[in-house]
């Protein structure tokens, strides 16, 4: 037996899991509200998703199928190590397929493929407080949430427009949940904000260093803040994915050579592979095949 055998299932002891589950239940009951919890030391540094890991560890069961993504990819260092961690401490099945997963832990993206009922998306959140930018005092931000004083969020957007001519915030774009709490969707691109709205899946957010958990239950209204004359818009990409030809997906730039060659491909690697398996091809893939 290796030394990990001394750990409880999914690393955390049952009492800690119960504490975190209570926080999760409260978060689900009050969509968008940041619930404080006694964040534990995890065997990885803060900034590596300790909040998300604790949430996942608390809801994971032996029959779950886990997917972990960083940016949109399953094969980055962070994703690989978190996936390996849960394989070790919980011996759960893992997958890269969005469809097959029951729990998806993510750092930056919401999968392109629409999530279904019964799936749970767990976000790793670095800074949960959307008002922190302009109001560093936590006593004050708590009061602002309690009294629904959200003028400051629009001050931030105002500054954006004054400086750039348009709302230049592209990540961590603030949303209002179920018409009540303003929430930071963590470092996801605003491109993914519309996917949060009325999602069939349960969305849980864990911030380890900041000791906060919040949630968006299935079928909940999630509205991106904006001005009447500067309405919310998602990023648009000029071309489809160079590999699978997908349109209306979030693309990453990939540098091809040192002569300025580059292409834009799906940030969601599983989605891209899936499409290619189904026979879709972008212009780079078509070119490669022609060359072969």
């Amino acid at each position: 037996m290796n030394d990990l055998a001394t750990y409880n299932f999914a690393y955390l002891d049952e009492q800690t899991k119960r504490m975190i589950r209570r926080a999760i239940l409260k978060a689900i009951a009050i969509p968008g509200y940041q619930v404080p919890f006694a964040s534990r030391e995890m065997p990885m540094p803060y900034g590596w998703g300790t909040g998300g890991v604790q949430v996942t560890a608390s809801i994971l069961g032996p029959k779950d199928v886990l997917k972990v993504i960083d940016q949109g990819a399953d094969d980055t260092t962070n994703a690989v190590s978190i996936r390996a961690f849960f394989q070790k401490v919980a011996d759960v099945a893992v997958t890269t397929k969005t469809k097959e997963a029951t729990i998806i832990q993510t750092r930056h993206r919401i999968p392109e493929e629409g999530l279904r009922e019964g799936q749970t998306l767990v976000y790793q959140v670095p800074i949960p407080e959307p008002l922190r930018f302009l109001e560093p005092r936590e006593t004050e931000t708590r009061k602002m949430h309690a009294l629904e004083e959200y003028g400051l969020m629009h001050v931030k957007l105002y500054e954006d427009i004054a400086r750039n001519g348009h709302i230049a915030t592209t990540y961590a774009y603030p949303v209002k949940v179920e018409g009540r709490y303003v929430m930071d969707p963590s470092p996801t691109p605003k491109f993914d904000n519309p996917k949060m709205h009325m999602s069939e899946a349960l969305q849980l957010f864990g911030a380890g260093r900041e000791k906060r958990i919040y949630a968006v239950p299935p079928y909940t209204e999630v509205v991106s803040l904006d001005f009447d004359d500067h309405p919310f818009e998602v990023q648009k990409f000029d071309k489809p994915c160079a590999l699978c030809g997908a349109e209306n997906v979030y693309l990453d730039e990939v540098v091809l050579d040192d002569k300025g060659g580059r292409m834009f491909v799906c940030s969601d690697t599983d989605h891209c592979e899936d499409r290619r398996d189904c026979g879709h091809a972008g212009h780079m893939l078509a070119r490669q095949e022609a060359a072969e």
Partner: peptide
């Protein structure tokens, strides 16, 4: 501008212009 506009936004003004 935002210092002056803050109170307007706080009472629900949502038109940047």
């Amino acid at each position: 501008g935002a210092n002056v506009g803050e109170r307007l936004m706080a009472v629900g003004d949502r038109h940047y212009g």
